[in-house]
Design a protein around this nucleic acid. Structure first.
Length: 455
RNA sequence: GAGGUUGUAGCUCAGUCGGUUAGAGCGUCAGUUUGUGGCACUGAAGGCCGUGGGUUCGAGACCCAUCAUCCUCCCCA
């Protein structure tokens, strides 16, 4: 028998890890609900045609495809061979694969909205917490199966939605005790840059290159722009754009100088000013930072874009999102604008772990262990245990009547704080012993008072 | 898709220049100890040295391949 193993980039989660992950999930879900979002779940797999072409060329390559069944059946075998040749030639063929694992939660959501737009009440606010899969090579903070927690609003152009989503980000990370920067930008400003640099058609090349500024530095960005066919004069304009620094106010002022007299630039700056004006009145004003180099890869964004960076730790973005004006248009339902954000739970977990920010009480499981000290003794213990459970106290009884040593060690291993002991003496006297393991202290009380004990 | 790292006991890791029966700590189990855990002591179990080839009188060690791991790039959460 070969040793069992896991597929690359996937993981099992043991009890302490699941508890810590649930702490993150619950925090995010509670805030989503607090802001009036409703849950949605969609299938793990989608039709390949739903996903292809939505994430750019790189994205398409990272979609996990599912092989069709029955490829080798006698009646299919010729078709399968042709399909396989097509795939080898770089084309997709539905005779070989027509389903794939979901790559993110936004496109399945757009598909859902497009399918159900007649039934939904707009603006429609949904949240979704489910795993996604990417055929990426695993490395730090990168997995092939990971969870996203998304909140999106469709059917509203109001920037108030951006304000709400920004507050959701700030509230969640505040509750998690994690210090973050909420970086914002507008795709419109990036479009304006491409315009004034005289290369509206080069917008993707420009944004991909400048997005790397904080990683590789100005000189390398210039080099990359040059290799992407951007002229020297254009690069000069771009580096002027990249040199914008200072407070949010200073950045806006500089941006007005540079792109403010183009239509896109003006609109983009107004969006950002609107958002910052709102946020600065609340408690999280200092969390939001303008970053004009922020681009984000997904090509359906059209307005404000977000990215979350954890401070004091080396990790890629732990969340991101933005506005898309016509997401469902891809599925035949035009004119439904939307805006959404996403939390990367697995990266948030890694960051909280590295900074030791998980609260100790996350790990509480069983509260009380009843010792098993004989047949009659354990019957009484069982009865009392059931009473405690009706009070909502989680408890368990050691299933075997073994020596104290073993039962104590079991309690220790599971971090069970209390032990209740009923031996022959206590059974006789209708008492029980409660021992607090951490302190090594114990008290004897009547069995009738156990349900009232403050565990 | 490109490059690098590491795979030895359940876990963390030693293992010299290629040499005879592969080690330690922790953990597990048993005992000292059948009415009180954490400590101590004694003992035991546990290994296809990732997998498959090759070189050699001889391979855990060297070579090739392969799989997995972690990391970097690309891209992203």
């Amino acid at each position: 028998m070969a040793k069992p193993s896991l597929p690359q980039g996937t993981r099992d989660f043991s009890a302490p890890v699941v508890r810590k992950r649930n702490y993150i999930f619950n925090t995010i879900r509670n805030v989503f609900e607090l802001y009036g979002f409703q849950p949605l779940e969609t299938p793990a797999m989608e039709n390949l045609t739903t996903l292809m072409g939505k994430y750019g060329d790189e994205g398409d390559k990272l979609i996990f495809k599912i092989l069709n069944n029955g490829l080798g059946d006698a009646k299919n075998i010729d078709k399968s061979k042709v399909a396989f040749e097509n795939v080898l030639a770089g084309k997709n063929d539905s005779n070989l694969t027509e389903r794939a694992l979901r790559y993110d939660l936004t496109i399945p959501f757009a598909r859902y909205v497009a399918m159900n737009h007649g039934q939904l009440t707009f603006p429609f606010k949904r949240y979704q917490v489910q795993p996604v899969w990417r055929a990426d090579r695993p490395q730090k903070g990168r997995y092939r199966e990971f969870y996203q927690c998304d909140a999106d609003v469709v059917g509203s152009k109001s920037l108030l939605n951006e304000v709400e989503l920004t507050n959701i980000y700030a509230t969640v990370f505040d509750k998690l005790g994690l210090d973050v920067e909420i970086r914002i930008n507008s795709r419109k400003i990036l479009a304006a840059l491409a315009e004034i640099a005289g290369g509206a058609d080069k917008m993707v090349d420009i944004t991909v290159a400048i997005d790397k500024l904080d990683k590789i530095g100005l000189e390398k960005v210039k080099e990359e722009l040059a290799t992407r066919g951007i002229s020297e004069a254009q690069i000069n304009t771009i580096s002027q754009y990249l040199s914008i620094e200072g407070t949010n106010e200073a950045k806006i002022a500089a941006q007005k100088e540079l792109t403010g007299n183009t239509e896109n630039g003006k609109a983009g700056i107004e969006e950002i000013e609107y958002l910052l004006n709102y946020i600065s009145k609340g408690p999280y004003g200092n969390k939001v930072v303008i970053d004009f180099t922020l681009a984000r890869g997904l090509n359906y964004y059209t307005g404000i874009i977000f990215e979350i960076k954890a401070k004091n730790v080396s990790m890629g973005s732990i969340g991101g999102g933005g506005r898309y004006d016509d997401l469902t248009g891809l599925f035949g339902v035009p004119n439904l604008p939307g805006v959404g954000i996403s939390f990367g739970v697995d990266r948030i977990y890694d960051v909280l772990e590295e900074l030791q920010l998980f609260p100790a009480e996350v790990q509480t499981g069983t509260q009380v262990l009843f010792f098993n000290l004989g047949t009659a003794e354990s019957e009484k213990a069982f009865e009392l245990m059931q009473q405690l459970r009706t009070k909502g106290i989680s408890c368990e009884i050691y299933p075997e009547s073994t020596k104290f040593d073993k039962q104590f060690k079991y309690a220790e291993k599971k971090d069970i704080p209390y032990v209740v002991m009923i031996g022959s003496r206590e059974l006789e006297e209708n008492n029980c012993i409660i021992k607090i393991l951490a302190k090594g202290e114990q008290t004897t009380i009547p069995q009738s008072e156990l349900v009232g004990f403050a565990f």
